[in-house]
Design a binder for these strands. Structure first.
Lengths: 138, 138
DNA sequence: TTTAATGTCTATAGAAATAGTAGAGTTACA
DNA sequence: TGTAACTCTACTATTTCTATAGACATTAAA
């Protein structure tokens, strides 16, 4: 299961993708429209800003904007930022590889190569789907 | 990420699959061989017993056995028992469906159909791979 | 029939993750 | 200069994860 936070992040980005281009959208508008707790959403958007996904304008008439075209923001990259590694095992993570301490070597691990296939299949979907795809829907 | 518990469960079952057919394997032997904390493994095997995956014999010469051929035990069914639903969203779970409260309808949800594809891809791997595949390796 | 070895079951506990909430601070437009 | 917006840090309640502890039940073998 992905976290609630990741769900919120993806839906918020989808809302931004649907907004007028160049016209910032306020946290409270996104929160209302997408039924996301406002203070929680603040944190999420701040994260996404720090990771270069969105930009913000402060003060009156402020709000958030996508930093790049929605077509270039994948589900995979957002999930990595919010929920961490995509891989089902630490020893299969591309961005946060960690050896399994209780495991006697990756070549002989009985389960590693199975989950390698899971990871591949998952990545194939997540990195080929963008926020634009999500926003396009009905 | 799957839990440590699920990793232990799959490796324990793989050990059972490699044991002499009909010859029960003791918890402590599995624990030593697979580097699993013994008391933790007890719980895991008990779960698997209650779910009909393994059978046990008590007393001297006791131990655990697979209840059905390793070829018929899939990774998917074990993960469901230990970690819960395979699906990345509650509203996509086959065994534990739950509506998303903050979501305005599953037809219009921007992210649901993306994760539906993730779930399909994941299930395809997890339910076509068995403990026998894991045990067969090197 | 006793004893030792084995699984069974319930309870407990510390650490980490999850899902928020609170509030003081900063910026910029009108 | 006022106020509407974002920024940042800290805090908290709940749940999940990863075990550990210990009393109990059963069985095989001496």
């Amino acid at each position: 299961m992905i976290t609630q936070k990741a769900k919120y992040a993806l839906r918020a980005l989808s809302a931004l993708a649907q907004a007028e281009a160049g016209d910032p959208m306020m946290i409270s508008d996104i929160a209302t429209q997408q039924k996301i707790p406002k203070k929680f959403l603040e944190q999420i958007l701040l994260d996404l800003k720090h990771q270069g996904i969105v930009i913000s304008r402060r003060g009156k008439q402020g709000g958030y904007l996508l930093r790049k075209p929605a077509e270039e923001i994948t589900f995979g990259e957002i999930l990595r930022i919010i929920d961490g590694p995509i891989a089902p095992l630490p020893c299969l993570s591309i961005t946060a590889y960690r050896r399994c301490e209780d495991c006697d070597g990756e070549q002989t691990c009985e389960i590693r190569h199975v989950f390698a296939r899971v990871a591949d299949a998952t990545r194939k979907v997540l990195f080929s789907t963008t926020i634009a795809d999500a926003a396009a829907l009905p």
